[in-house]
Each structure stands twice: as C-alpha cells, then as structure tokens.
Amino acid sequence: MWIIDNENDGTPEHPIQMPYVNYSGLVRDFTDDVYSFVDKHEEMELRSYAEILKENGIEWGMDSMSTAVVENLDAKCVFAMILGAVRAERFCDGALLGFFANGSVIRWLERLKALDTDGENVAAK
C-alpha cells in the first residue's frame, strides 16, 4: 500500500514526507527469506545478480526482468531476478511492488518450483 502524506503542507514546521510503500508482513518475510537464502548459498554467487542477469541477456530493470522468458532459465538466474527485484526497492520505492503486481514474482517462483520437481533443493543442482 502506498503511503502518501496528505496531512502536511510543506512548510518548515510541517514538511511533506515522501511517498513510500508500506509492505505487508508477508512481503517483509519474503525479502528476509531472499537475503537469508543468498547468505546460506554463497556458492551460487547471487550477490553478483546483475552480472548473472547480463550473462543471460537480461538487464537489471523492470521491463527486461518482467518480460524475460523464464522457461529456459536455470535456478541461479531466476534467483538473481528475485534478488534484483528485492534490491531494486532500495533504489526506487515501489519497484518490488511493481514486480509483484505484474506477476513476475509468481512466474519466478513457479519456475523454481518446476525446477524442483524431484523435491530436492534447487540450490544443490
């Protein structure tokens, strides 16, 4: 939910707060889980998510990541897109909301599920 300051008038006594997204606990848990996964699986080198995306012909941006054909991507690249979406929020309020709203996050999670058809951890593959 976007929080927009409609109470203050912009004077020095009542400065207007910049709009921001107030994410639900579920989304905050999701981002915590993403960072936890990155920390636990250093062998995947996901901190280099922008390079991983670039190697797969995907730019770190809303359009390129949202339109990427995930059916041909491996788990490492899909995780890199997820981390890229989470990191984008740090630079642009509402970026992560955009990836949720346009269905990208669901597509990425569904791809990971498809890669994990045998019930093993996709990080081990």
Rank of each mutant, 00 (worst) to 15 (best):
H14L: 03
Q17W: 11
T11E: 09
V38A: 09
E89T: 00
I52W: 08
L109W: 02
A124M: 09
R111C: 03
D116M: 05
A80L: 10
L112H: 01
D29Q: 07
T67R: 06
E43N: 03
Y20K: 13
R111M: 04
E45T: 15
I106S: 07
A85T: 07
S64L: 09
A50Q: 14
E7P: 00
D118P: 00
I106R: 10
A75P: 07
L109N: 01
D116S: 08
M44F: 08
L46N: 14
W60H: 04
D39R: 14
V86Q: 13
I58A: 04
A80Q: 09
N6E: 15
N102F: 05
R111N: 01
G119R: 00
E55A: 13
L97S: 14
V86K: 12
E45Y: 15
L97R: 14
S36I: 05
W60G: 00
G61K: 09
V27Y: 02
A124N: 04
L73C: 04
N72L: 07
R107W: 05
E42N: 13
T117V: 14
V69S: 06
E110W: 14
K40W: 11
F91T: 11
E51P: 07
A114T: 05
A124H: 02
S66E: 07
T11L: 10
W2K: 09
A75I: 02
H41W: 09
R87A: 11
E43I: 09
V34W: 00
G94R: 03
D5Q: 13
I52E: 10
F79L: 08
Y49N: 10
N8H: 08
L115F: 10
D63C: 06
N8R: 09
M44D: 04
S64W: 12
V122F: 11
G98L: 07
S104C: 15
